[in-house]
């Protein structure tokens, strides 16, 4: 019994890690652009497609495919960032919603147009099970947890100490003041956006081996899973996102086991409602910044 619960908690941490890597990009983009990026799941999809393309068409090994997936997404993010995302800075809130929803449709349908709407089979990755603490786990999932920890430590350091991180924090607090002191706001916005998109792509490539199927519409479900995470974590809060993602992952895993798989997707939004009633600024915000 105890070991069964422990196994489910580890399962939850794995799915939490996936949510965390995707959500942290989304929350940083929100912090800087003040726009929920509804196309975020699409970068997750693009990363996966990039890696799938590299493996399927060029027979490249999986580690190389990871790099290709992320770089391909970065290139697309530069284009989208310059033409669309930079213009959202300072625009009315509905601009961000419409623009990102539009981008989501364009990206999704372009991929379907180019590669077809059918499901593709992702053959790369390390799927052999390994035994840890008496139960088995695919090697890939261990990799996901390790990468998640590295990403968050890296981001924490970057946001706290680097020039770029400081600029990001400044922009998320007050755009006008940043302009006054000479911070290039559109540049910061663009870089944050590219970083966020790359993280989503990385998460996509890392989960592809265990999720097996690759298809144009796969990003949508990710966008809707990460929304509750970033709101629970406190919009724009990197550390909060990490814990919120873990809570959601573990709660989902326990509900799927002890209540029923069909109730799994309700967990995110049910928790979200509770959080909004009890702590409307998120679980981990010391105070509201806006």
């Amino acid at each position: 019994m105890v070991s069964a619960i422990f196994e489910q908690i580890v399962n939850g941490i794995v799915s939490g890690s996936v949510y965390a890597i995707v959500a942290v990009g989304m929350t940083m983009i929100f912090g800087v652009l003040r726009a929920i990026n509804f196309a975020h799941g699409e970068y997750y999809m693009l990363g996966t497609f990039g890696a799938w393309f590299a493996i399927e068409y060029f027979d490249l090994p999986y580690p190389v495919a990871i790099v290709i997936g992320v770089v391909a997404t970065a290139v697309i993010a530069v284009v989208v960032g310059q033409f669309v995302m930079q213009r959202i800075v300072g625009a009315p809130p509905e601009t961000g919603v419409l623009a990102t929803l539009g981008i989501a449709l364009v990206l999704q349908n372009t991929v379907i147009l180019v590669f077809g709407g059918g499901y593709k089979f992702f053959s790369g990755g390390y799927i052999e099970p390994v035994s840890i603490f008496g139960f088995t786990l695919a090697e890939q999932r261990v990799l996901i947890i390790i990468v998640c920890i590295l990403v968050f430590v890296g981001l924490e350091l970057m946001v706290t100490y680097s020039r770029m991180g400081k600029a990001m924090r400044a922009v998320s607090q007050n755009i006008e003041c940043c302009a006054v002191v000479g911070i290039d706001v559109p540049q910061v916005a663009l870089r944050t956006f590219i970083l966020g998109a790359c993280l989503a792509a990385l998460s996509g490539v890392l989960t592809a081996p265990v999720n097996v199927s690759v298809y144009g519409g796969m990003g949508e479900i990710i966008t809707f899973k990460t929304l509750p995470v970033i709101i629970m974590g406190g919009l724009g809060n990197v550390r909060g996102t990490f814990f919120a993602a873990m809570i959601l992952g573990i709660a989902e895993s326990l509900v799927a086991t002890y209540v029923g798989l069909q109730f799994r997707d309700t967990v995110g939004f049910a928790t979200l409602m509770l959080v909004l009633m009890w702590r409307p600024h998120g679980l981990f915000s010391a105070q509201a910044r806006f």
């Binding site: 196994e7 265990v210 479900i221 029923g260 798989l261 799994r264």
Partner: peptide, 18 residues
């Protein structure tokens, strides 16, 4: 045991362990 998954579900580890 009786479980139903939503279309698009990708994580079956919990239910398979059960």
């Amino acid at each position: 045991t009786e479980d139903y998954y939503k279309e698009g579900e990708v994580d079956f580890r919990s239910v398979l362990a059960k």
